[in-house]
Amino acid sequence: EEELAVVGSWSSLPLYQDFTTPFWTEMLPEMTDGDFTAQLTSFDQMGIAGSDVYRMLGDGVFDVGQTVADYTVGDAPELEGLDVPLVATTADQAKAMVDAARPMVVDIMHDRFNAEVLGIAPYPPQVVFCKGEVSSLADLEGKKVRGSGRMTTKLLEALGAEGINIAFSEVPGSLQRGVIDCAVTGAGSGYSAGWWEVSDHLLTLPLGGWDPVVIAMNKDRYDGLSGEMQDKLKAAVAEGLEAKAWAAAEGGLENDIACLTGEGECTSGDAASMTLVEATEEDVTTAREALESEVLPEWAERAGTDWAKRWNDTVGATVGVTVPVSD
């Protein structure tokens, strides 16, 4: 019997409470006939930065780590390619994007963090909460927007908005008092954090991508398991955690938007009444253009040509975007 020390991501969010916790603490022992048990905590409870999870995982400080891949791109810029904003608007598209990127992610986690990928689960898509009239993407120009993740902030800047880097905790107050005009986060998180109290317009274009969480295991620990045990563990994660999180992402956005706007049925509580701003054809074109002409080429420089090419062949081919590569 193997006992795993598992570190999850944000303990206050549904991914942890509804999927991560039941999976590691209850389902895993059942699904593996008691071969695996787990002790679960989260990086916020440990008081460590989300960006440090894989660094510590590689050192063997715990067995399994889960964190938002975007948090760790400081150590691995090529990992930004897992979550390119705008290119996936539905859960299906996001799943296709992540699946296409998966072989890359496996190599990156292995080379950079001495880790084996067990699975990749999504957060709900990251949308834009604005205070004040916004009717299209073009209206973001000149606005002060708090982004999440480097590529999102770069995209916002390419669209003429001013990317402001402030802590998540300061967002509601800053929105209310006009320090910022808009902020990007998951629709569900924004709903439960009460961002609708301080903002009134909701842009559902996934400017912030999907913030996929990579579930990874220390490589030495993984290699120490028998082949059969390895397969069991991976199968359990795929079925008990990954598949369920993706299934929830499907209906989740619709419900979250209903809760935020009051249009449609909200199963999470009382609905707010934000104004839903649907992206126009024109908006999408402008944003994609900024993405392809500025944001992705810059990423190709950060990550290196080889990774950009590999991205073009896999993710790019799936979502229909090509990073211009210099040589």
Binding site: G47, I48, D52, R55, M56, D59, G60, V61, A167
Partner: peptide
Amino acid sequence: SAFPLLRGLGQVVWSSSSSST
């Protein structure tokens, strides 16, 4: 703890002190 937590010490010291809050 069965884990080499000491290896996380440096990272904890850096991340807890490099805080704009």
